[in-house]
């Protein structure tokens, strides 16, 4: 497809049936039946995760990126969520991959100075820790950070850390979901939580359930929310399932497994 035809896409407006894709090697697709996410370390880079939430259960670690001097430092911290966004994402991941290990790295919070640098520092740290999957229901529009984020994303790709990144809800350029080394996710409008769509017209590569999603809510409750933020953890959960069934797959192979499990990818003999 010529580059000029690559229109930016943030969400799926077509019906899934309109995005017909075929594969002849579907028999290589990993079987996700029975997979629980056991043994897979998932990091939620966000606003934190509320401890003890019934929709989430145990959290294996909580960390925060803090400004220190001219730079940043990552410290272990008391579990908690400064606004609720991370808790909502973690609940979706837990629902899909109930036995995965969940870690929280807080990069959002009150006082927004230098947020972009905090975001990059948190992602870099998470990649260095060797998490299997990192959920990024966030992005930055700062072009100055694009190259740093590209380098970190490439590093993750070669270290076998899968970054699942939310396409921005707004029609603006943002990062790192635009990079091919990550798995980018937008929302479809169907009310089917299990529906995964491969997008043959990138840059957004997959569409997942982001409309009217039941999410974990601060204070122990649940609410129904809509946004690309909530589509992304559905794919993160699927990645955890793939990796628990087939440990050691590379991000390229995980992306391929998602492709072959997408409902619009038709299996030809």
């Amino acid at each position: 497809m010529p580059a000029a035809d690559l229109a930016l896409t943030w969400s799926l407006k077509d019906r899934p049936d309109d995005l017909d894709v075929t594969t002849t090697w579907w028999s290589r697709a990993p079987d996700l039946a029975g997979a629980t996410g056991r043994g897979v370390r998932v990091c939620v880079l966000d606003s934190g995760i509320e401890p003890g939430h019934p929709a989430i259960g145990p959290i294996q670690g909580s960390y925060a990126v803090l400004a220190e001097g001219d730079g940043t430092v990552v410290r272990e911290t008391e579990p908690g969520d400064v606004c609720g966004h991370g808790t909502a994402c973690a609940g979706i991941i837990r629902k899909i991959a109930p036995e995965c290990e969940l870690y929280s790295v807080r990069v959002l919070g009150p006082g927004f100075a230098g947020r972009g640098n905090v975001f990059v520092a948190g992602l870099r740290w998470a990649v260095e820790q060797g998490f299997d999957v990192i959920n990024l229901s966030l992005s930055t529009t700062r072009r100055q950070l694009a190259e740093d984020l590209r380098a970190v994303s490439d590093d993750a790709y070669f270290r076998r850390t899968v970054i699942v990144a939310s396409a921005h809800n707004l029609p603006v350029e943002s990062y790192p979901w635009r990079f091919s080394s990550v798995i980018s996710v937008g929302s479809h409008a169907e009310g089917d939580a299990a529906l995964l769509i491969y997008n043959p017209r990138p840059p957004v590569e997959f569409f997942a359930h982001g409309s009217d999603v039941e999410v974990a809510w601060p204070g122990g409750g649940r609410r129904r929310c809509t946004g690309n933020s909530f589509a992304t953890p559905h794919v993160t959960g699927l990645c955890a399932l793939v990796l628990s069934g087939c440990p050691g797959l590379t991000p390229f192979q995980v992306k391929n497994a998602l492709y072959m499990n997408a409902r619009n990818v038709r299996r030809e003999p």
């Binding site: 959002l108 927004f112 229901s137 992005s139 921005h168 809800n169 009217d212 933020s229």
Partner: peptide
């Protein structure tokens, strides 16, 4: 904080 649009019901 998240810079993400959302609908809540």
């Amino acid at each position: 904080s998240s810079r993400q649009a959302m609908i809540v019901d």
